[in-house]
């Protein structure tokens, strides 16, 4: 199997729970990379802390497993220093948007060519099922025994508003869509965000009585529709999937190249 050369097979079976969506994201990510035929030496994967962040350990590229919430800040250093590298940053929902929220919006604002994945399972898995900024209201969690009163971020709207130039959403059920979107996100010359709705059967599923992994995937299948579909108008509760923003704007490292030229030209 061709994707195996992108895996660090000695660490398999991986550490995630049975039915965890993060494994499916790993599956899709290595397939997306494989279809592009990218050299493993030109890819750097940077992650933070959490279940999702352990994904970097399984991929045979340059991997940087950093601090909770800070992956995009580390990645910015890698990318600006060596813009020829492809930098992919898989993050969890709490990692990316609670502790890492500031780095997230500023990386988007700069439009630096980094691919940010938000593996959104609406829960902190590693620490035992506490609610996250993407849990949303009326959700049960270890820190919300009477249900949450915190509304969730809309990752897509937030990313677009912050300046990301490629913004998409997909799910771990719609895997072909996910591979295609990941490929486009990686190829995009600018800051790209892919929100991947993922399942945590162990904590989120159990606390909210959503059934097993397959049941939760059915929920993602039935609860989402392609962007712009009529079904969404009839039922606003449905979540849209697809590409929400895709535009060309000045990319940060390319702009810095111009600064270097200007600085050299003006040198006394």
């Amino acid at each position: 199997m061709t994707i195996r050369k992108y895996l660090r097979e000695r660490f398999f079976p991986h550490m995630w729970c049975p039915g965890c969506g993060h494994g499916t994201v790993l599956n899709a990510l290595v397939r997306a990379i494989e279809t592009m035929g990218m050299s493993r030496n030109e890819i750097v994967m940077v992650s933070g802390i959490g279940c999702s962040s352990r994904i970097t350990g399984y991929v045979d590229v340059h991997t940087l497993h950093t601090l909770h919430g800070r992956a995009l800040a580390f990645a910015t250093g890698v990318k600006l220093s060596k813009p020829e590298l492809n930098v992919i940053v898989p993050m969890g929902d709490g990692d990316a948007l609670a502790i890492g929220g500031n780095h997230f919006i500023h990386a988007a604002r700069r439009n630096i060519a980094i691919t940010a994945l938000v593996m959104n399972n609406r829960i902190y898995g590693m620490t035992g099922g506490q609610y996250s900024p993407l849990s949303g209201c009326d959700v049960m969690a270890a820190t919300a025994p009477y249900s949450t009163i915190d509304p969730a971020f809309d990752v897509v709207a937030l990313s677009v508003a912050a300046g990301a130039t490629f913004v998409a959403r997909c799910t771990t059920y719609h895997v072909k869509e996910m591979i295609d979107i990941l490929r486009q996100a990686i190829l995009h010359e600018g800051f790209s965000v892919v929100e991947i709705l993922s399942q945590c059967p162990t904590y989120f599923g159990r606390a909210n009585k959503l059934g097993d992994a397959a049941e939760m995937l059915r929920g993602l299948k039935e609860g989402t529709v392609p962007v712009g579909s009529e079904a969404k108008q009839k039922n606003p509760a449905l979540i849209e999937r697809g590409i929400f923003a895709q535009q060309e704007k000045p990319e940060y490292c390319a702009e810095y190249e111009k600064i270097m030229q200007r600085a050299r030209a003006g040198r006394e």
Binding site: I3, P13, C20, A28, V175
Partner: peptide, 8 residues
């Protein structure tokens, strides 16, 4: 194959 979270 594509959905398998265990890449098995």
């Amino acid at each position: 194959m594509l959905r398998c979270p265990d890449l098995a």
